[in-house]
């Protein structure tokens, strides 16, 4: 990552009739990022992605890809892009290879061997001669990824890339994304509802709700914060609660399953344990409880947070 903005989105707005779908969002994606784009259904993710790809015209705002404005210089902006928008769509009466050939024909300088390369990458070489209508959902997903990679893109947009795949397939695709980002310096823009997927493969994330950006940053930043959460198992929960109330580094205490759930400043949990033991509170165990992106996501979307 060198800080170069591969994608710049500024003040995008879009309404369909009276419904405001995207309401003034903006963010940047740097070269080499695996950028997670999260939001509940109806948040405006797909509309945003379609605007970024020049399929839907924004009412306001601009999108720049690789330095080219998508509205003013579409052909140059889209040249280095590969994408799956929503479910991968195909011509079911054409074979896998013929479907890829349809796209290869749009890139006259692409060598014919590239189709074999991408088919091999997604493990579909053996089924390339079969009609896509006979493919499983997982195979279509893999063929979609092959198609997105066909033109040697520098930026790849993926909408729910592991949807329909079995656990092994999911693992393979995630590994492939991480590998491509690292080895071929491909920037990925991934829209997904699988939050653990974002945790696993994305380095940055933007969260969208009701057409507005509610959080953005690195996954580490969003999850890390300054505090941590610990679960204390103790038979003296009442006494422990009294002791911890009013302690400066303890941010909140609430009853939990078999004890207490305590939010405290990061790195103070040993001190907390010592404090309880010194007051003769029996601590069975103290377990750090990581806040997953999922919890964070739910808190944000339910709480109506806005990006500062």
């Amino acid at each position: 990552m060198n800080g170069e903005h591969v994608i710049e989105v500024k003040s995008l707005r879009k309404s369909f009739g009276p419904t405001k779908v995207v309401d003034g969002i903006g963010f940047n994606v740097e070269k080499g990022d695996v950028f997670g784009f999260l939001g509940p259904n109806g948040a405006g993710k797909t509309t945003t992605m379609r605007m970024m790809l020049g399929l839907v015209y924004p009412d306001e705002g601009s999108v720049t890809i690789n330095g080219y404005n998508i509205a003013k210089d579409f052909l140059n902006a889209i040249r280095g892009v590969g994408a799956i928008v929503e479910t991968p769509r195909f011509y079911p009466y054409l074979t896998g290879r013929q479907n890829l050939l349809q796209i290869a024909n749009l890139h006259p300088r692409l060598p014919g061997s590239r189709i074999d390369e991408v088919l091999d990458m997604v493990g579909l070489t053996g089924r390339a001669a079969n009609r896509v209508g006979t493919y499983s959902l997982g195979m279509k997903q893999r063929l979609g990824i092959a198609r997105a990679l066909l033109n040697h893109p520098s930026v790849v947009f993926l909408d729910e890339p592991t949807n329909g795949l079995d656990p092994q397939g999911m693992k393979e695709i995630r590994e492939m994304i991480s590998q491509l980002a690292l080895e071929q310096d491909i920037t990925f823009f991934i829209s997904t509802h699988l939050l653990h997927e974002v945790e696993q493969i994305c380095n940055k994330v933007t969260i969208l709700n009701k057409g507005r950006l509610i959080a953005r940053g690195t996954v580490k930043e969003l999850l890390g914060k300054d505090n941590e959460l610990v679960e204390i198992s103790t038979p003296d929960a009442g006494k422990a609660l009294e002791i911890l109330t009013g302690i400066g580094y303890v941010k909140s205490v609430k009853p939990g399953l078999g004890g207490l759930e305590v939010e405290l400043e990061r790195g103070r949990s040993a001190e907390l344990n010592g404090l309880l033991v010194s007051h003769s509170v029996m601590v069975n165990y103290l377990v750090p409880k990581n806040q997953s992106l999922e919890q964070f996501f739910i808190e944000l979307t339910e709480g109506g947070h806005q990006v500062a």
Binding site: L55, I78, I103, N151
Partner: peptide, 14 residues
Amino acid sequence: VNGTLTLSLIHPVS
């Protein structure tokens, strides 16, 4: 309607 028109339009084709 089948979403296949999109396939050509996300490539350098006017």
